[in-house]
Write a protein that binds this DNA or RNA. Structure first.
Lengths: 342, 342
DNA sequence: CTGAAAGCGCTTACAG
DNA sequence: CTGAAAGCGCTTACAG
């Protein structure tokens, strides 16, 4: 690889050519007071002309800011590559970053527990200014870890606990309300909820809300726990759909798009007609829901917007804001072909 | 946000407590000669004990290496979030990075041409040690740009052009051979290929190979160009499947999983039975292919392994290697339910 | 408004 | 084998 030595343009070069001090160049570049408008203009012009971009390492070292945020995803590759959830989330983060000229340091660790170490290292190494966290657990060790290291962080979660970490909170009760009201209007009375793993706080919150809100509406609620995988969705669906006619649910609310697809397929295999004999709602919309036949009714949570809000909150925290909680807007139910009268 | 000031542990701290020089600490930490085994051990122990992690900014500034590689994806969010291609690719990159303790700086720009600017900025800012590039175009401006800035880079591509940039090359002819031989063994003679946009070099190479290799096998080949979108797949499929019985292809090879799904659906809508009247092969496997009914026959290209190989090559180049071309292994055809006798 | 200087936390010749 | 010192490219009080 015949590679030219990259001759870097520095503020010293600019200072020399303009015959001023490096400090003045720095002030001019950063829009700080301390230079005349004229000097500032000359600096900016020359910087533009020379294609100057400040060394991120030098900035990070002297100003202790990197302009970079970190996201560490500790999930099974199988699930994560299939779901589409994270890719849309990343896009939302990037939209904000593109405008703010920030960067994203990404790590996909898988579910081996290595993620804590990555948070610790990146924080200590000063690689990032803050983190966005997903998939909160009970007594999530990431919270005390980041707090103890003084690292700004935003948890995207359903839990409004006040533990001094930033939180972008999804009001699950509103989502649950939208789904249940839809089913109620169609006359459904026996409903089952196939959730993801309840080790995730958001899944537990959803399950609780679902039961509470369903009961309040006079519905018979049943909750079973899945793993997000296709197989898991198929297994649980099979169990539920082979119950006696009197107890069998007439509607299933399914924790993600993959399991919802599996449910749809299982119903077909069992000869259960959708939506005539069974209604299905997927918790998260995706292409899978779109290309399924019949097309799956699903919640659109505005994932990209949500991710953008999370990033916004994180940047505000990094900037010194003390407002740690914000709420994301409720999504909209895309009523397609898998929900009908009970 | 009540945040503790992160008190950083530095090599000065270690040097002071051990009453040696910072240089010795640095040598010890980096496994360089210049310190006794005993001193090295004491340094390593203390570093461990104090939870020392070197400031990445300081390392980057003085040693001019960041341990970070960059990936900039300039694709339509719609397509990219649906495909699953990139998420699996990212996972492959991360697998290598996890072992090499490297990091990934990621930017998703969308198709607005902003990507060139990101490459330029990140290079000049010294944010990354190198780039992995995807989706090569004709006269791709990224190549001369990165070459001129002395930035190591690996293009994941189908083109073995020798332009001094690193290349992980997919031998498309082998993929084409696998697919065509499968169809030939089933007796197919009229085959259409719905490719992605031929502005991408790999799509053009595939289309050429497909025609050449098909003709050599005595097949009547037809090529149409799609956009990777569902709608595009549906449109092209509709056109092809409504041709007169004598010219209508008996098998379709489709450029990605989304278009293949659309083709499958369109066939169903038109009453064309799959695989009895039409065989379909998807160029890339994914969940979509797996959950489709009938399940789509598709190529598994080992995307994660491929991404790992690309990252490996990039690290070698960064390390000074002069071997710029490597080939990725051919994938395997997952024969499922959409291919059958002509 | 402007400049000289110290400092961020490392690495790396260069002497001893 | 070990230490003192310069340097990477910025930012930021501090004087003028």
């Amino acid at each position: 690889m015949s590679i030219a030595r990259p001759e870097r343009v520095t503020i010293s070069d600019i200072a020399r050519r303009l015959d001023i001090s490096k400090a003045s160049v720095s002030y001019a570049l950063n829009g700080r007071p301390g230079v005349s408008a004229q000097t500032r203009a000359r600096v900016l012009d020359l910087a533009e002309e020379l294609g100057f971009h400040p060394s991120s390492a030098a900035v990070a070292l002297s100003a202790a800011r990197t302009g970079t945020i970190g996201i560490v995803i500790a999930r099974d590759p199988q699930v994560i590559t299939a779901e589409g959830f994270y890719m849309r989330t990343l896009f939302g983060v990037e939209q904000f970053l593109n405008d703010a000229d920030g960067s994203l340091l990404l790590r996909l660790t898988g579910e081996n527990g290595e993620d804590l170490d990555v948070y610790r290292r990146w924080a200590r190494q000063g690689r990032v200014d803050g983190f966005i966290l997903y998939d909160e657990h009970d007594d999530d060790p990431r919270v005390p870890l980041l707090l103890s290291m003084g690292m700004p962080a935003v948890m995207v979660t359903s839990s409004p606990i006040d533990d001094h970490i930033g939180r972008l909170i999804t009001p699950e009760v509103e989502t649950v309300t939208v789904m249940l009201d839809h089913l109620k209007s169609l006359g459904h009375k026996r409903i089952a909820h196939i959730s993801g793993p309840t080790t995730y706080i958001h899944e537990r919150v959803r399950a609780q809300m679902m039961t509470t809100e369903g009961n309040r509406r006079g519905m018979r609620m049943r909750h079973v726990e899945g793993t997000y995988s296709y197989e898991s969705g198929a297994t649980e669906a099979h169990r539920l759909l082979t119950l006696s006619a009197r107890t069998r649910p007439t509607a299933l609310i399914v924790g993600n798009d993959i399991m919802a697809t599996a449910v749809l397929r299982t119903a077909a295999d069992l000869g259960v007609r959708v939506p005539e004999e069974l209604s299905i709602i997927a918790w998260d919309d995706s292409v899978l829901c779109h290309v399924a036949r019949p097309q799956l009714t699903a919640m659109d949570h505005g994932l990209m917007e949500k991710a953008r809000l999370a990033t916004h909150l994180l940047f505000d925290l990094i900037g010194g804001s003390t407002e740690v909680h914000r709420y994301s807007p409720v999504g909209t139910l895309l009523v397609r072909e898998t929900t009908g009268p009970a």
